[in-house]
Amino acid sequence: MTQHIWNILHSVKDPEIDSVSIVDLGMVNSIKQVEDTIVIELLPTFMGCPALDIIKGNVKKACKEELGTDLVEVNFVYSPPWTSDRLTEGGRDRLKEFGIAPPPKNFTGEEDWQIQCPYCDSPYTSMENLFGPTACRSILYCKQCKNPFEAMKPISTMM
């Protein structure tokens, strides 16, 4: 049953990045069955993210469509904290397809953040704005292929 629900959650996409699922993003902390109710714990990426309520609604909707049940509880929890290392390899690839550079791995906040263009892989990029159209993204420019692009901000408990 739990495996089946994981598969269903693969179909729930980030409302603002529609190629990446909440499983790819590492937002699913646990899936439990408590008596008749399915309890799903999600980790918010950024706390003020306005997409959270939409995601919650979409999870319930997907479960109802696939399982025919309303007995689904979706809770946001903060422990463990979501970090960008929770992205899956598949998730990193799909972010790139969408035009968003994935965050560096094992970021501590001390080192320079090297970002490669998601289109041409060039490291010859410049940061235009650390803050982008959503809380989790920055705006960059590739000096090689001359495309603007976005990058997902690294988030780590080492910062």
Binding site: P44, F46, M47, Y78, S79, P81, W82, T83, G109, L130, F131, A135, K153, I155, S156, T157, M159
Partner: peptide
Amino acid sequence: EMAIKMNTELYYHLLH
């Protein structure tokens, strides 16, 4: 628990 999460976001505010 909440403080640990908030801290990751504050990093960017401080830098700015």
